[in-house]
Design a protein around this nucleic acid. Structure first.
Lengths: 249, 249
DNA sequence: CGCTTTTTTGAGTCCCATCAACCTTTGTGG
DNA sequence: CCACAAAGGTTGATGGGACTCAAAAAAGCG
């Protein structure tokens, strides 16, 4: 949108950062924040651009500030499965491991707040807040992965699509501090092919099921990537999940 | 085997514990160990017996000492998917959450080393070793979950079965401090139905594919639950994974 | 506007789920 | 000791949901 480098780079000061209270630095006090500020740098990625490749040495860890990135694994014959979807405030990389186990790829424009590995690992050892927050976030990610496993193993194609849209809608609502419900408008951050890799389907099946949900009035389309939900609860019914959700953390 | 209560309960002293150097207490010094020793108690479970039910309040967290437990999620219509397989030294429960999000069920006889929640959470805050080890274990579990997602989303039934057997064989070998390879004999800790819930299949398909692998000479059967691997690498070929594995942690 | 990328739609096929029958093992009590 | 039941496992027949192959439409993009 804005061509000035200020928009291409991240916020200069952590206090202005949009993910200040959700990222790995959430619980940090001003002195710890200063420490982090000293080891951080920003990197920008274009849609489709790899962030790290499986087997690569990673000299940094970091947080997604804006945009969406994906983690994917592939079998030798080319079948690929997405195993992580990184939204703003999500963390990329693992302390005490410098070889990336997955491909990380920018799905949209991405701004990444990177920390040099060595000083970050040192900080993990000396300050409890960062380590504690990272544990919290990792446990949340594990919960999400298990929800995802239920989807991959037991849901029908139609339920998978409905679940995916519901997940994006919930995260989007959470980002704007609203509750999902009523009429909503959401942008899909992924292509049909990436959705297929997320859901363990082919892109043709994704396209067909999206069309079917539209035909049945569960969703409306405004362009290929924008979805309007007339009734969020209707979508949840189609997802196969318990209606009560249980999404309290 | 042994009817004395000594075999039904866990080891009296942590120093004698079989999972002393792999569980959440792995990095603890003697003084921290004494602290843990003061808040721990043992519980025993029979095969099929629930450990906690989804929605239950958990007044403890703990480690599997011996045996195998499963974590499962279910949709309202009864479809169930296993989302965790807890082997000796694996951790059950999450600090700062007292409502269980999954069903945990003993698959075999299980001895669980339980810690009362409150003192354990206190210890998490005061001693770095326990928190650090728990983060390490959680990150490993996340890696395993992602491997599992690739299996659920993209592998064929035959590959799923081969992968499952390979996973059990690797863990079994690790427990006995051997490398997997050559001729191996392994016991499956799960019924065909539980294997199906692990792999996102039906029990009939599991049975058929096990028979097919036997017919093709990839495995031999000694009873329903005991498998002999004439050649571990042959099994890995059938699993669809890269042969090099990449199982360094 | 050409050109590529993304998406949709169609026709045919196959893998795995479903439904069903049977076998084996284990345990129980008459 | 054996009849019976229950649980776990195997095998067969059938059908359907998702994949594959194929082509065209739509949307970006220089």
């Amino acid at each position: 949108m804005n061509q000035k480098s200020a928009s291409l780079d991240g916020p200069e000061r952590c206090g202005d950062c949009p993910i200040r209270y959700r990222a790995v630095c959430a619980h940090c006090e001003t002195d710890e924040l200063a420490l982090l500020e000293g080891m951080k740098f920003y990197r920008n990625f274009e849609p489709g651009q790899p962030i790290v490749w499986e087997g690569d040495r990673m000299e940094f860890v970091g947080s997604v500030v804006t945009g969406v990135a994906t983690l994917t694994q592939t079998l030798e014959d080319g079948r690929t499965q997405m195993v992580g979807l990184l939204l703003p405030s999500d963390f990329l990389g693992r302390p005490s491991r410098d070889i990336a186990p997955y491909n990380a790829i920018a799905a949209t424009k991405v701004v990444l707040c990177c920390f040099r590995r060595k000083p970050f690992e040192q900080m993990m050892r000396t300050t409890p807040h960062v380590a504690h927050r990272l544990l919290e976030m990792t446990l949340d990610e594990l919960d999400a992965a298990r929800e995802w496993m239920l989807l991959l193993g037991r849901k029908t194609a139609r339920e998978k699509i409905a679940s995916f849209i519901a997940i994006i809608a919930r995260r989007d609502a959470a980002l704007h501090k609203r509750d999902p419900g009523g009429r909503m408008r959401i942008d899909l951050p992924l292509t049909r092919e990436s959705m297929a890799d997320y859901l363990g389907l082919t892109l043709e099946t994704v396209s067909r099921q999206v069309s079917a949900l539209k035909r049945d009035g569960v969703i409306e389309l405004a362009g290929k990537r924008t979805i309007i939900l007339p009734d969020f609860s209707r979508l949840v019914e189609e997802s196969g999940d318990d209606s009560d959700g249980g999404y309290l953390s």
